[in-house]
Design a protein around this nucleic acid. Structure first.
Lengths: 337, 337
DNA sequence: AAAAATAATGCAATCGATTGCAATCAGTCA
DNA sequence: TGACTGATTGCAATCGATTGCATTATTTTT
């Protein structure tokens, strides 16, 4: 900082009133307490002097910061841009500023980020980072920090969340493949320590069972393209003779495409492939990816709205919003031979 | 906020010392001013009470905020995730928290965002939003706000920036196409109000002139997929008989692919295509995109480092870092027929 | 005109951390 | 033991905005 900025005292001097009157005149909710001519004089001086309120000072007094921490596991994973877009849209509209932390997946590191955020006295946190039994969530709960989970949830019902319907999503994918004749369907699971990994794996198995089928499952090390490639390599190299793969997200599916290409297998002629999320550009990959669409931007908006409601109502009520998925059939799936 | 949090006074009471001694003991730079046994007693009490410094209070006193504003024109444009990743990485490592604003391209809206950030007393700003003669930059300069431009620069030499070598990038693209026999090469320009739009257009024309060629140019309305599609439709529908297109960025190129497909033109057989940026996933689009790679994450890191240096040295020296581009040949270009 | 009611304004304290300087303490030396 | 010096600690003010309550001014009522 260290820039000369105008204070309320300077405006008070210029307008010939007390600083408290300036404060009241410039606050829309207190404006009525000041005489019209005085308030006008104050506003004019404030504008002439380029007054910009110091939210640090006001918030110190008010016991708030108007800041919200947003933790992402990997900022460059394309699924997070629309989520973050929805979050920042709603927070900004309500007067909050989002501090973004690219927090990775290691809890000690995440906790370190959150400690920094707590020093800044963030009003609340939106976590996209959680595992099934999350240490960071425990840390936040112990400190009474308002928290909303987005995209992933915890196995325990400790905090509110907004997620997609993982079971329904997997059912859409499996049903689609079964409908076009596939029976030997495998699943690339995301990390089972995350709700999306575990629930989609469960959903896959449940959907398969509904058709009296079982399918091979391989957990990827992370929600990465490389993780998808390794898992796909395992699945197509095994005894399963799979004709189709359902991936837990689009990045895993792209990795699977890499692996198929490396083994000179064609998609969808040799192996059909379904992703999850409908992240940007999967419609122009080769082949255009059949996937399960989640409205991520809306997910981000809902998360931000839930946090704001929580802050304004002081309510501790725990809620879960589950977004419906939608199957988007493109060219990565075709009838089984 | 409104959560019971431990203050320095509580620690002072628990340790039987004055609050100022607590403050000194907990600050690594002042620790030597406190007796060892006293400091240890204070640290123990602070840890037992879960003390978390209130940076709002400290920063009010210090005249800083440890916050940095980062303005993006469109958070969902894939080029910005790696830039933002690099920015947040370096800022976090140096104790700053990045407030992210998805600020769009309208200056009045951007200024509104920045006013909010100035109220939060951000220590500086990193702007990825600028046009050639940017109103927001003027606004910041008038207020003495430290600013670094990233990805785009201004025509005027008012503030430091880190950008890519647009002229070299276009030269790589044009030379590659000319080398494989193309002579009728067109250019989809980004918005000419932005430095990337204008400099890449200029670079295109200069590179063409080096080969004694001229090329058709069409400006896209925005750096969007739709903008690219419209411009490509114009260029391939015109009298130019183009055999190749150089797009000002990858999103424009993807849009051009959409347009080609709609007109039943094949890429690269009918029209070769070169993008710019090498954003994530262009290697798996159909066809894998030939493009000019920019190290965006490094760009973000450099921008953050530059801002931090500016803040720590109080230097007003204006610097420009220009990153070298690299041609990445994939399958969207082939020899002219 | 005086009293009562209402409106407007100023005062002083608060929020929590930091720090220059004064006061006190501890150690050393003559 | 007293004087001197350096170390340690406490005091009081600061940062800038907010607000409960007291004071003052203005308006309304009797």
């Amino acid at each position: 900082m260290n820039r000369p900025v105008t204070t309320i005292k300077q405006i008070a001097d210029a307008a010939g009133v007390h600083p408290s009157t300036v404060s009241r005149a410039l606050d829309p909710k207190k404006r009525h307490l000041v005489a019209d001519d005085v308030a006008r004089r104050i506003s004019a001086r404030a504008e002439a002097l380029g007054y910009q309120p110091n939210r640090l000072a006001a918030n110190l007094r008010l016991g708030r910061s108007d800041l919200v921490g947003v933790l992402l596991p990997d900022i460059t994973n394309p699924v997070f841009a629309p989520i973050l877009g929805g979050i920042t849209e709603v927070l900004s509209a309500e007067g909050y500023a989002p501090i973004v932390a690219d927090a990775g997946n290691i809890s000690s590191q995440q906790i370190s980020f959150v400690e920094r955020l707590l020093s800044q006295r963030v009003d609340g946190l939106i976590l996209a980072t959680v595992s099934q039994d999350d240490e960071l969530v425990g840390f936040c709960l112990r400190r009474g920090v308002p928290v909303i989970l987005v995209n992933r949830s915890e196995a325990r019902d400790r905090v509110s969340s907004v997620v997609s319907d993982d079971e329904m999503g997997m059912r859409l994918a499996v049903d689609h493949l079964v409908d076009i004749g596939h029976r030997r369907i495998a699943h690339i699971a995301g990390p089972l320590s995350t709700s999306t990994g575990a629930l989609r794996r469960d959903g896959f198995e449940r959907a398969m069972a509904r058709h009296g089928l079982t399918g091979a499952v391989r957990e990827a090390a992370g929600y990465t393209r490389e993780g998808g490639a390794l898992a796909a390599t395992y699945l197509v190299g095994g005894p399963h003779q799979v004709t189709a793969i359902v991936a837990a997200n689009d990045l895993l599916a792209i990795g699977a495409l890499d692996a198929l290409q490396e083994r000179h297998l064609r998609c969808p002629e040799d192996i059909s492939l379904v992703g999850h999320n409908d992240m940007p550009l999967v419609d122009v990959v080769s082949p255009p990816l059949t996937t399960v669409r989640i409205e991520h931007r809306e997910m981000g908006r809902i998360a931000a709205r839930m946090l704001i409601e929580m802050l304004q109502s002081k309510s501790a009520e725990i809620r879960h919003v589950v977004l419906p998925p939608e199957l988007v059939v493109r060219k990565s799936t075709q009838p089984a031979a």
